[in-house]
Each structure stands twice: as C-alpha cells, then as structure tokens.
Design a binder for these strands. Structure first.
Length: 432
DNA sequence: TCTGGGGTCCTAGGACCC
DNA sequence: TCTGGGGTCCTAGGACCC
C-alpha cells in the first residue's frame, strides 16, 4: 500500500524557544545569532518583515536592529536541544514511523488517506505539540519527501491554511508552477543559477526536465529531486539513523589568536567536546584531522589555511590520547606571523566501541577508559567542564563571544525560571 | 572592530593493479 | 607505422542541507 510523507517543521524554531520563556517577545521582532554572535540564524516573522536576511552578519544590520528595537539573543543550544527533544517525543508518541531530520524538523510516514483525513491528522499533531511543549509547528503532506517539503512551505507561508497543508492530486502542477526552482529541497544557489540560465525557473519546469540533461548537469541527486517532484519516491524514511561517519568540533575565536600555546588550548578544548560526543555515542576514532585558518574576510591580512590528518595506532575515545595526537598535528601546521581566526578538529574512521580492532604490537595507555567514564559521569552530574584536561586551559582568552544568551531554563538547576506572585511572596531569587 | 557550526553525498582524477 | 582495456580505491573539492 502506498504511503504519504508528512514534514513537521517548528516555526522560527530558536525564536519560538526564546519566546516560550519570555512571552513579552510575542508580536515583537526577535533574532537569534550564531556562535560568536556573528550572523543572524533565526528570525521571527516580524524580523523577516523588516528585511533582516538569514545568515546576514550581525554588524551589518545593527542599525536596522537598533532602529526597530529588535530583540537579539546569542544562541542557547542546551535550551533548543532540550525543547527539540520534547517536540520529537510528542511526535513519536503519536506516530510510529518518524525520522528526526534536524533539530527542528521530522518526517513522518503515514498510510495513504483522503485529503481531509490527512489535514485532520495534521491539525491534531500541531495542536498536541503546541499544548504539550508550547512550540508552534507547520505540517505539510506529499507523496514524497521533496513534495512534503513543498507542502510544508505552503503551510507556513500562506496563513489561510492554518499551518497544515496537503498537496492535492488535482492541480498539483499549477501549484508547482508558483514555486521557484531554488526553493525546491536539494536545489541550492549554484544549481538554481545554472537552471535559471537554462530556462528552468520553477519546480514544475524541473519536474518536466529532460532526464539525460538533468543527470549530466545536476548529477544523480538532481535527477532524484526531479523524480521526487513527479511523485516517485527516491528518498526513503530513515527511521533508524545510519551510523555517523564523522564528528567535528570547531569555533571562531572571540579575537584573533597569534600564539601557538593559545591555539593548542583552544584545540584541546574542542577535542574534549568532540571526544565526549564520541563516547556518548559509544564509538571510537582512528583518524584525527586538525585544521586552522586565518580570517578570510580580512583581505588585507596575510592568509593561511591548512589541515593535517593523522592516523592513530588503534581506535580510541580517550580525550587525553586524542589531545596528544591533535597537538602534534597542530605543531606541524602552525606558522608564526599569522592572526588565526579558527581551529577545529574532525574525527573520522569511526567504529562502534565494541567492534574496534586491537593491535598486535601496540598497547594503549592503561586506565584511560575508566578515567574517561569517571570524567563523563562527573561532568554530567555537575556540568560540562567541571573536570577537564589542563591542556584546555583556564583563562581562555580565545573563547567566543556569547554576550546575549538567555538562561538554560530547562537543563540547568541554577538557571530555572523563577515565577513570582508579588502580592503573596516576596522573591529573593533572580527574576526570570 | 564585527562574517557560525556540523554534517552528508557526489564526482573527477590520480594511483595502482592485472 | 606504431603506445590497451578494465577495474578498484582514495582523496580533494564542490554542492547541498539545517
């Protein structure tokens, strides 16, 4: 029996998370910034209406933001991650076949049904998430993932549908003719430009494109997208996430760094973050890539960017071992006389911890695994960085900016929201 | 002054093999 | 006059996603 895909997408997710604990933000323009308070990565509808663009550098729209009293927040991933989990939990309780696609999106596979039944189901999901978590979502239905994406877009952009929309069988082409080809999932700016130049301007044009031409100019992924627009499902629901292939950790510095010792500190702390994730997923790595780069936007400055990959004797998940190899790679990469903007680490060649190969002639340092288990346990209980490698430093002058972060309301005991009823209780705590 | 971070997939081209 | 064909594996770079 054929099935239908639904895409559930949280509206302006990070902004909605901020509003949940700060209702005064309702109806006002709000934006959330990327790490290091660099770019705009989430906007309320009011902020979008002001013309603030996604991905725009913060410093470029400061004027607009001040003039309209736009509320600005640093990103608060512990909060967003926790609320995302709650949304997905609700969804999984209501639907058996769910693929969590990103922090704010999930695909659901449901049996084929009449349009009105789909819409009814969607309205129920939407109301339940709103009631139990408080986050507004939009839901779109289509016969493939790509079509569900388009339906979701229509649900979000056209308020008359009340946040839920199902693509009809009749008149689908007329709808696709209203969608820019660049707004189709999988068609990015480069391909969009190429397609436009060749007269393919809408989703309908792409759907009707010539297969040989599409294969040649957009590769198999582009052809797959066209097939999906025709209602031929090429992208299955991945309700069991495939094993992860790499883990990255990197940050831009709050200010340029020239000194190898500071770079090593920063790198060590990023390695610690990535290694913690590695252990949390019960995996090990044998391949560590370190990279560093100067600020490419400062065209007058001398530029340098490079990376080095080292292969370890055997797989490991020990922060200390990984820092050891990472630091050596960094030492080889480092060139004096540059103002560095970022270092980062990538773990590749990941295997499940229980399937890691041993080595006939190499014995890993003893006691690392139990040490790391203890460190993780302490940090889970008392907060990240309660216990960390000395290599990751203490002063951390390189640390990124995060000047406008809201509290971690739902994940830190010290930052719980405080609700007060002034006529009854005089609060002594910090106001929420 | 100030421009994010973390992923995946695909292809072309080189190295190497028989 | 005349220099094969077919295959695998690896990597760097590009494109896309949120």
């Amino acid at each position: 029996m054929s099935s239908i895909f639904a895409l559930l997408d949280c509206n302006n997710f990070y902004v909605s998370c901020e509003r949940l604990f700060n209702p005064r933000l309702e109806g006002r323009p709000v934006v959330v910034l990327s790490n290091n308070d660099g770019c705009i990565i989430a906007r309320s509808n009011e902020a979008k209406a002001l013309g603030i663009k996604m991905g725009e550098p913060f410093f470029k729209c400061c004027g607009l933001i001040a003039a309209h009293q736009v509320q600005v927040f640093s990103s608060n991933y512990p909060l967003y991650g926790d609320l995302s989990q709650r949304v997905m939990d609700v969804l999984c309780q209501l639907e058996p076949e769910v693929e969590v696609y990103s922090i704010d999106e999930a695909f659901v596979r449901i049996p084929q049904a009449k349009e009105e039944a789909l819409l009814e189901n969607g309205r129920h999901l939407r109301a339940t998430v709103k009631k139990q978590v408080g986050i507004p979502v939009s839901i779109g239905f289509g016969s493939t993932k790509t079509l569900a994406k388009i339906a979701n877009r229509i649900a979000k952009k056209r308020p008359e549908h009340g946040g839920v929309f199902a693509l009809p069988d009749q008149g689908l082409d007329a709808l696709l003719a209203t969608i820019d080809v660049g707004d189709v999932w999988g068609i990015g700016p480069r391909q969009s430009q190429k397609l436009f130049a060749c007269g393919i301007r809408t989703a309908l044009d792409l759907k009707n494109g010539n297969d040989t031409w599409l294969r040649k100019h957009l590769t198999v992924t582009g052809l797959r997208t066209a097939m999906e627009l025709r209602g031929i499902s090429c992208l299955p629901l991945e309700d069991i996430p495939p094993p992860r292939k790499s883990i990255t950790s990197s940050r831009s510095f709050g200010q340029p760094v020239t000194d190898l010792a500071w770079l090593r500190e920063a790198l060590s702390s990023y390695i610690a973050i990535a290694a913690e994730k590695l252990r949390a997923e019960e995996m090990k790595t044998r391949c560590v890539q370190v990279y560093l780069t100067t600020n490419r936007f400062r065209e007058g400055d001398p530029q340098y960017a490079n990376s080095k990959t080292v292969t370890l004797p055997i797989h490991t998940s020990s922060t200390l071992e990984l820092i050891h190899y990472g630091a050596e790679a960094l030492r080889q990469l480092f060139r004096p006389g540059y103002a560095y903007q970022k270092v980062g680490v990538v773990f590749m060649d990941l295997v499940s911890a229980s399937h890691a190969q041993g080595h006939l002639f190499y014995a890993p340092p003893k006691g690392q695994e139990s040490l790391m288990r203890a460190v993780d346990k302490i940090n889970r209980r008392w907060g990240r960085d309660t216990l960390h490698s000395a290599a990751a430093g203490f002063l951390r002058p390189w640390k990124h900016k995060q000047g406008r972060k809201s509290p971690s309301y739902t994940t830190s005991w010290n930052e719980l929201p405080v609700v007060s009823a002034p006529s009854i209780v005089k609060t002594t705590g910090r106001a929420a």
